[in-house]
Write a protein that binds this DNA or RNA. Structure first.
Lengths: 120, 120
DNA sequence: ACGCTATTTCTAGAATATTCGAAATAACAG
DNA sequence: CTGTTATTTCGAATATTCTAGAAATAGCGT
């Protein structure tokens, strides 16, 4: 991950409709969502959303696959992870104690220790 | 951290000069850097950088403090951590296995010196 | 006070982003 | 082939961002 790629991804996420679109797609993993369904959920015209999805796609944050008449969009969590690591890598240069709180926050956020999630 | 605040921070970081400015300030923690020194390092006119620093400051990503004639800028790693957690929080909804690779990447990246850095 | 240095604010033009109506493209059914 | 649905591309208006010259502000030394 280089600066140029990071800027592309950060710019893609730094617009309200796109950030919500990405978050919605994340919530719908791994099934994905059709472009039209996403437009309806976000209450945005289809062609406007299409432009936003194109930007997210160029930033590799989402991928798309045609499914008969619909085009299914999915969040690309791998790229998302790379960006997170890129951002945090910068904060680790020589001072691991800076990242420790981040790692701890994520551990408590990501580690459901007891109960399995109801959503199936 | 709400969407609006996240968009502000992501937008602040999604411009090459500002991303490099922020990374440079991170590397100079905890001493900070004078605005002029940073402008010289980045080879950007002082007033242009001043506008960028103002945007980073409004997004709470940097803080400033006057030191006689100079104004010392410092990266605000707390806000930075909040953004990282906000972004990753979205990816954790129901699927902790998504975040696991991120946490692992950060752990190896931020690993304290107690253990040798395994380059596996 | 004056000059010198460091930084910001003012200003405006150029570049880029956002939005959406309308037209185009793609897939399927009859 | 024609019609319907799903989505994208085109085009153009509007809004925002970026950049930097010039002027203004703040602090320090004399």
């Amino acid at each position: 991950m280089e600066t140029e790629e990071a800027v592309l991804a950060l710019a893609a996420l730094s617009q309200p409709t796109r950030l919500e679109a990405f978050r919605t797609l994340v919530r719908h993993e791994p099934d994905g969502l059709a472009a039209g369904d996403l437009a309806r959920l976000l209450e945005v015209p289809q062609n406007t959303l299409s432009a936003h999805l194109s930007i997210l796609s160029r930033a590799r944050l989402v991928s798309s696959e045609r499914h008969s008449r619909s085009i299914i969009y999915r969040a690309n969590l791998g790229e998302f992870r790379d960006i997170a690591v890129f951002l945090l890598r910068d904060c680790c240069g020589g001072r691991p104690e800076v990242c420790q709180p981040v790692v701890e926050s994520l551990q408590s956020c990501c580690a459901p220790k007891r109960k399995e999630k109801a959503r199936a």
